[in-house]
Design a protein around this nucleic acid. Structure first.
Lengths: 245, 245
DNA sequence: CGGCTCCTTGAGCCCAGTCAAAGTCCGTGG
DNA sequence: CCACGGACTTTGACTGGGCTCAAGGAGCCG
């Protein structure tokens, strides 16, 4: 099974065969490919369908009138952008690809069909939203309290955990396909300072980052440095009591 | 009608008499009062009931191992903390009162009863969640991109809009019952710098803040300074097509 | 090979932090 | 009614983390 969405959701609870099939079908329609750095949704748009990332990385961002840009969230394979966004009249932020991506557009009726067909799926989609909200809160904490090194280290730990949850890590290495400028807009730092901060982690022997390959050399040490506590991700099979079978 | 929760929700859509009654009943049980600066929910707790603020201010916060604290959200009268939190096994953040508060504890069956009794209520609770998520995103933008003055000005504008939505403003003045240290933990600044930033806004004739009374002298100017765009709050009757009658 | 885009490094500056000490406000109790 | 204590605010002096500006290197693609 190589559907990252199902893979992600099964970090919460196990599905039946029928449920997997339903999820597979729902996310297999309206698949499209986009290149790198393309807009997917613009601020002010009316919400139409929900986008699900199957391959590649995308991001949510907001731009201030004077051009400053903040990346608000990364969408990794398996991430769903706001299943109930239909309730709102217009988007208050934009979504864009960071790398070439494969997306599935999921319509409102499809989402409703899924939640009505299985309370287990409905509950799991709740979990997905709560997980995303928790990530957003932790980013708030990072930006408010963590220093530059801590912030970068924390992000690298988070990405590691999230990518591992969908099977996209090898040991403690993973593909980090973003530029330092993207990281700057994410971490609220200048790209120059992001570069210096990366050098600092390299110099301390914590990471290697070459090409797009990031390797963490001592995960517990990096977590300690980042004051990283994985609990907020809720990836630890919290819906075990709901498991199928 | 003095129920701030109903008042807030009616910024989205108008309810029928029966729906108002159902909301009133749901939020009138298990009402309790707490003093200032008391813990309401601790990190690591199992989620039990959802808290609804009826009077006073509370906040969501996270504390790092070394004591640094970030306030992640303000809960004003009418704000509900995460209707579906039950899905998670443990809280990843804490909730505490900032002033004396009156809270209603709403249980899971009560929430379910509400959403099943009326799709209009169900939809409006979705809106409430999306509104809260949007606020969280905007805080991320503030912490990442806005300078100290912009951040403070932006928060003051946001609080004005949110309090106005529940009828707690008088002209462009409202009660701001928090300390400068609280603001510091919210804005990711030191309390000394918050103080200097307040002086700056005072000196520019933008605000008066005396006792707990904050007055904004020129709202459009403050909004411009803060790069504040109220759209993200979605307080503009976006569910008009759902209105009762 | 030229021209992108992205990364790296240096120098100087400034916004915001820290430390420390007054000042103000307010509630309480004598 | 005043004295005291505690919490909060204000101010000054100094420090430092991160920003800006600017130039040069490295990698990649047509």
């Amino acid at each position: 099974m190589n559907n990252p969405f199902i893979r992600k959701l099964e970090n919460f609870t196990r599905f039946s065969q029928a449920e997997r099939k339903a999820l597979e079908d729902a996310t297999g329609q309206n698949v499209r490919r986009l290149g790198s750095r393309e807009d997917i949704v613009n601020e002010g748009d009316e919400p139409r369908a929900v986008n699900l990332v199957l391959e590649g990385w995308a991001c949510r961002y907001k731009q201030l009138q004077d051009g400053r840009r903040q990346i608000i969230a990364f969408f990794l394979p398996g991430d769903l952008c706001d299943p109930h966004i239909f309730t709102l009249r217009q988007m208050d932020h934009a979504v864009a690809s960071l790398t070439p991506v494969t997306l599935a557009r999921v319509t409102q009726p499809t989402i409703e069909g899924l939640t009505e067909s299985s309370t287990r799926i409905a509950e799991t989609l709740w979990w997905e939203m709560l997980h995303n909200a928790a990530v957003q809160r932790e980013w708030t904490v990072s930006l408010g309290q963590r220093s530059a090194v801590e912030r970068l280290a924390h992000l690298l730990c988070e990405l590691y955990m999230r990518l591992r949850a969908v099977g996209l890590t090898e040991g403690t290495a993973y593909d980090l396909p973003v530029t330092q400028a993207d990281l700057a807009d994410t971490l609220g730092l200048s790209s120059v300072h992001v570069n210096r901060t990366i050098q600092e982690l390299r110099g301390a022997g914590q990471i290697t980052w070459k090409g797009r390959r990031l390797t963490i050399h001592d995960l517990p040490a990096l977590m300690a440095l980042a004051l990283f506590d994985p609990n907020y991700l809720h990836l630890d099979h919290e819906g075990a009591h709901l498991d199928a079978q």
